[in-house]
Design a protein around this nucleic acid. Structure first.
Length: 399
DNA sequence: CTATCCCGCCATATA
DNA sequence: TATATGGCGGGATAG
């Protein structure tokens, strides 16, 4: 009753201008954010959100799932989330990265191919070693990707979790956090997000499904300005550019530390995600046919004061390699059972940094990581400390 | 035509 | 069981 079918809306039909854009996940997410990103908000009710935004609950789940993956929200209970805000992003990203690094350090893959896949599903995900970043272009490692079947014993529950939007989002983000590449073609991302390997079989259709999910993720992350939908400069192919890590482009000096948005707890618009009812939606350059998209769009993001910190733009051999595989399948609880978020995380950045560093074979990466640690530390400390009262969740998380 | 991706059915999870 | 979640992919719209 509350929902109106697409074609025909409420009052008459005066608005033949039905446009999907008006109901895009991204726009909805923007509304969602502006609705809750206030100092006095600390709890979010899905029911309330759905009602206030005038959409079906299903859509709220989509938004909330990805936002939670990047630390903007935290689940409390049924129908209940606590609003962390943008200040929670740095921490979340840091943890994601930490997790990603841990996973790829070859120590994983405890689960080899156990037995053949049962029923339908294909052996999803790949993982395996991360020895070198450059995996052979094609053919890759169809064989190695066979594994992962393992964890199936974990019952259906984990199985479902494996394909959740939230996990997909995390893996997607990890991809950007563990490499200096900032742009991935949609297609490539879709492939990496799951068991690529063999491109044969009827994975064609499967891939299409994944892409659909990728669009969902991209849309909400875009509205948060962590991501940007673009297209590869050469190939006009659609691609996604990560914005969550770069500082302002104009910083020549490698420094360009964080632009800590809220020195004071005041500015809740950490990420400058202000949505005006007007659709400020950037029109995607997309000129006629051969125009250079380059400067087409002006100040892409009105100086999102957000951005964690400046990072040197040492974009070296980006073109060469591909991202190593990470471990998608229900890893989280895979190995341990007691770990999870209980332990002592983010203890010493110092030690973490030093312990991680040696893992890089690539000098540039190593250096880059150093910057990451530095900047993150700064940012995190500042935000965590200064953040208004709603920092309680953070505090408790640490235990 | 292909790229996007909204919509909501219905399987699962949870209270 | 009822309700809450959220895969999943058909098929409509944008380009």
């Amino acid at each position: 009753m509350t929902s109106l079918p697409p074609p025909f809306l409420e009052s008459g039909y005066r608005h033949h201008t039905y446009s999907r854009k008006q109901k895009s996940l991204g726009l909805l997410c923007s509304k969602f954010v502006s609705l809750y990103d206030r100092d006095d908000v600390e709890s979010v009710s899905l029911d309330d959100a759905a009602r206030r935004l005038g959409v079906e609950r299903r859509r709220i789940y989509d938004i909330v799932n990805v936002l939670e993956s990047v630390g903007v929200l935290a689940r409390n209970a049924k129908n209940r989330y606590s609003w962390i805000g943008f200040s929670g992003i740095p921490k979340a990203l840091f943890e994601l990265k930490e997790e990603a690094l841990k996973e790829m350090s070859g120590t994983d893959s405890p689960c080899v191919k156990v037995l053949e896949d049962e029923e339908d599903d294909r052996s999803s995900d790949q993982n395996g070693d991360f020895a070198d970043y450059k995996l052979s272009p094609a053919s890759m490692d169809a064989a190695s990707s066979l594994c992962s079947a393992a964890c199936r014993a974990r019952s259906v529950t984990d199985k479902r979790r494996e394909k959740s939007l939230g996990l997909l989002t995390q893996n997607f983000v990890k991809l950007f956090l563990t490499t200096d590449a900032e742009m991935v073609s949609l297609d490539e991302a879709a492939r990496l997000l799951l068991g690529d390997g063999c491109d044969s079989s009827q994975m064609r259709n499967n891939n299409a499904a994944k892409v659909r999910r990728l669009y969902d993720i991209a849309n909400v992350l875009s509205s948060i300005n962590l991501l940007e939908k673009t297209q590869q400069l050469d190939t006009r192919k659609p691609a996604l550019r990560w914005l969550g890590t770069k500082g302002k482009p104009r910083a020549d000096n490698d420094v360009a530390v964080a632009i800590t948005p809220s020195t004071k707890q005041r500015s809740k618009r950490a990420f400058g995600t202000d949505i005006t009812n007007a659709d400020y939606k950037r029109s995607k350059l997309n000129p006629p046919a051969d125009k250079k998209p380059s400067k087409a769009r002006l100040r892409t993001d009105d100086s999102k004061e957000c951005n964690l910190m400046g990072q040197t733009q040492l974009q070296n051999s980006k073109g060469g390699y591909v991202f190593g595989p990470f471990q998608p399948d229900g890893v989280s609880k895979g190995s341990g059972d007691v770990e999870e978020k209980g332990g002592n995380k983010l203890q010493d950045w110092e030690s973490l940094a030093s312990s991680f560093r040696p893992q890089y074979h690539n000098q540039a990466l190593s250096e880059l990581f150093g910057h990451y640690m530095e900047a993150w530390k700064l940012w995190y400390v500042e935000v965590a400390q200064g953040s208004r009262k709603l920092q309680q969740p953070c505090k408790s998380v640490i235990n």
